[in-house]
Design a protein around this nucleic acid. Structure first.
Lengths: 111, 111
DNA sequence: TATATTAATCGTATATTTGCGATATATAAT
DNA sequence: ATTATATATCGCAAATATACGATTAATATA
């Protein structure tokens, strides 16, 4: 593909796409669900629940963290992950904005 | 990578991930925006606006269509695309459900 | 201090995505 | 009938993503 053209789009478009990308794998959805079932940081458990190798889960966690969807602090031999509320709400707002924008404009869509 | 493990997750997780994947590229976000600015099917215009080759845009349109986010009918030398409201609302509902679920459970998140 | 435990990172194989030019297809215009 | 126009599809190259085992790092525990 030679060159990536992502930078040819607006920052909002890029941000939204990047956020969606972080959600674009069932393992990462599943991880978020596991995090949702706890009120505190999880220092494990995730690997035990998912049908994936430890190294693979660690990679998915890293991606979620890079995308800003979760916070994590390495704490000796155990790590501590939980959901980053601010980022998550921001995505929800932007997505809803796009969604509502579309909805208003397209009430009588043709097909 | 040997084997894909997506089928090891629940259908809801897979569906949500697949939908997110369709949104996971700025070009496809941009296409949805263009579609949003019209109340009728678009029979072109999309290629003109995007900074990509015609064949590439056609591929992105195909992906959006396969994911069910847009409807499209080939009509001779021109095609006709518009947003598939049902699918879009379904995704929004499922995403909001996940989001709200998380929110209720995690009001006092630790990190 | 030696050993177990937990999780990140490295290296690697394979699959998928992205992008483009070239070509095919289908119709409108001349 | 020929030509122009719009769009899908094919074939390919390069970039990314996915997955795993092996290793490393960092601490608890014996």
């Amino acid at each position: 593909m030679a060159i990536h053209k992502k930078e040819a789009f607006s920052k909002k478009e890029q941000d939204l796409a990047e956020f969606a990308k972080a959600l674009a794998h069932p393992a990462r959805i599943a991880i978020l669900k596991v995090l949702a079932q706890h009120n505190e940081c999880i220092c494990g458990e995730i690997v035990a629940v998912l049908p994936l190798a430890q190294s693979t889960v660690s990679q998915h966690l890293k991606e979620l963290k890079n995308a800003g969807l979760i916070n994590g602090s390495v704490d000796g031999p155990r790590s501590c992950y939980c959901i980053n509320w601010k980022a998550f709400e921001k995505f929800n707002a932007e997505f809803s904005f796009l969604f509502n924008h579309l909805k208003l404009k397209n009430l009588q869509s043709c097909c």
